[in-house]
């Protein structure tokens, strides 16, 4: 969409204004996310850039909020920084570390469950012989569509009856429900771009069904499985409404602790946590991008 040489002045103006507008929208998307990173190094407990920060005075920046994140909840905060005793105290007692451990534990559990269930279902759904295909797909995908508050409240009433509230198993199951649609979608998509004659070729060459599955199908749909798993992981890691309804203080996750932190009194250590999470999402995004390229290469498409 480059500017043609014959463009008149109005067209020229429109062209630049349009680009400017698009760039502004893209900045609107990323700047709010990125702006909290420098703010989290504020030496003062404010949520805005101080004069010292704007003039790049080193004294105006500090890591105090990051230290706060790790040390909050420690038994003995006077321990020398980064010593073994400090590390073990942080690992065992820090509030945020406890939430982080919970977040990872729950997200990994939910990811494993939803990846297995979702992949199997997607394999079944993508077969031509599957009856009521559209209806079942719609049902399996519905957890994304149903408002999270309705889902959480409903699961809360069920779990309260069978004693699964305030347990790790309960929240893992709830997050599995929320994560499976993504796996179903991505694996179904991977299967639809899949050349079925490869299966027939393998069968004709004498491969048994399990060989066909592990040697032919698996490697080809792997990018879809992994990106579905990442979606499921992200969903669970980011989820807070079900956590609010189904868990107690002991099972709190990072978003849950951020939620109560924001509601009660917002302190800049929230910004430090948020900045760490932003780095994590950049990592996740990179992995997704690499996967996408790999899947394009595998299918013989030109890498872009």
């Amino acid at each position: 969409m480059s500017l043609p040489v014959y463009a008149g002045p109005f067209e020229r103006l429109w062209y630049y204004l349009f680009r400017l507008f698009c760039i502004l929208v893209l900045l609107f998307l990323v700047l709010p996310v990125l702006i909290i990173v420098p703010l989290s190094f504020n030496a003062e407990p404010y949520f805005t850039f101080t004069h010292g920060m704007l003039s790049l005075d080193p004294a105006a920046f500090s890591l105090r909020w990051y230290r706060d994140v790790f040390q909050n909840g420690m038994v003995d905060p006077t321990l020398p920084f980064a010593s073994w005793a400090w590390l073990s105290d942080v690992w065992q007692n820090s509030q945020w570390i406890h939430s982080a451990k919970n977040s990872f534990l729950i997200a990994i559990g939910a990811t494993v469950l939803s990846t297995i269930l979702g992949t199997l279902a997607a394999l079944g759904l993508s077969q031509e012989s599957m009856p009521a295909n559209r209806l079942i797909t719609a049902i399996l995908i519905s957890p994304i569509i149903v408002p999270i508050i309705v889902t959480s409240a409903s699961i809360f009433f069920l779990f309260a009856r069978i004693g699964l509230t305030n347990t790790y198993l309960g929240i893992v199951l709830a997050h599995t429900v929320l994560g499976t649609p993504f796996v179903v979608i991505t694996v179904t998509a991977a299967m639809s771009g899949f050349d079925r004659s490869l299966i027939r070729a393998a069968q004709m060459l004498g491969a048994r069904p399990h060989v066909v599955f592990f040697r032919i199908i698996m490697p080809l749909i792997m990018p879809g499985v992994i990106s579905g798993a990442l979606f499921a992981f992200g969903t669970s890691f980011d989820e807070v409404v079900a956590v609010i309804f189904l868990t107690d203080f002991e099972q709190r996750t990072i978003p849950r602790q951020m939620w109560s932190g924001i509601r009660e009194q917002i302190s800049p250590s929230i910004l430090a946590v948020a900045s760490i999470l932003v780095c994590l999402s950049i990592l996740l995004l990179t992995v997704m991008e690499l996967l996408r390229r790999r899947s394009e290469r595998i299918r013989g498409l030109a890498p872009s």
Partner: peptide, 13 residues
């Protein structure tokens, strides 16, 4: 990037 960033982070921002 915002799509993959935690909802709570964006709300905090």
């Amino acid at each position: 990037l915002p799509f993959w960033t935690s909802l709570l982070v964006r709300t905090t921002a």
